[in-house]
Design a protein around this nucleic acid. Structure first.
Lengths: 133, 133
DNA sequence: CGCAATGCTTCACGAACTGAAGTAAGCGGC
DNA sequence: GCCGCTTACTTCAGTTCGTGAAGCATTGCG
């Protein structure tokens, strides 16, 4: 598309850089599987965007969609191997967030967030894997 | 803003998910430092977007900007520690791209140094269950 | 003087994302 | 029978984001 298509970083970036994509994958990795579960977990996502993301991800072979002909209709989404292979990436992002973006619960004070962390000092040491969200 | 601000994944995602952001960081990590170098390397990026990205990244404390009062005026951008900490993430993306998006890394710009140099952990060449899409 | 180079900014346009609302299909309550 | 509830979406209008072309400011060179 826009940049070098032969570059694996670019190609991964194109998958990953949609606005909610990574978060959808994270939620799927954490066991959420249904549309409305994702919708509630990712609070703020519009159903259109979620629908678009899931469909794109399905087309990429990153998620699998399974419909159950029940009432009310049930649809479950799950990561494929190709999707699960993105989990380390997400864990890296979590580690980065913890190390360099470390704000535990407070963000809406605004203004100063950059000066706090931008001075070149990591805020926490590396925490392994799955944290409670 | 959109989702849970207490989640480190979300906060990292917000930094990383701008359309060219990761690629800008990669180029910076590979040694490119000037506006027009980046502009040419990321062919297809609009100067406005590059300018926006660089400024946002600077405000995040991820890149440092240094101006030289020469003629023509020179400006150099470089990653801070906080920015360099994102390189493993990019390497993960490269590994993912190579494993699952099955295109070899052909960076004709001589960008190959990182693949060679950043090989602290060898990219395991697993068999990607060949996605014939 | 006119042109070139660098590092932007401005502009108009189209693509992407948003929030609210609507749709379909059937179950349970009244 | 009719109403409302649920799920998994789709549609719509509106806002924000990214694009490509062009412009601006500086000043050294021919």
């Amino acid at each position: 598309m826009s940049s070098n298509d032969t570059c694996p970083v670019c190609r991964t970036a194109e998958i990953v850089c949609g606005k909610w994509t990574l978060l959808v994958i994270r939620d799927l990795a954490e066991g959420r599987s249904r549309f409305c579960e994702l919708e509630r977990s990712l609070h703020g996502i519009s159903p259109r965007t979620l629908s678009l993301r899931l469909r794109a991800l399905e087309e990429e072979g990153i998620v699998e969609r399974q419909t159950f002909p029940e009432v009310p209709p049930r649809v479950e989404y799950a990561l494929t191997d190709k999707g699960r292979a993105l989990v380390p990436l997400i864990e890296d992002m979590r580690a980065y967030g913890i190390q360099w973006l470390a704000v535990d619960c407070i963000d809406e004070d605004g203004a100063d967030e950059t000066t706090a962390a931008a001075d070149g000092e990591p805020v926490a040491e590396r925490e392994p894997a799955i944290a409670a969200v």
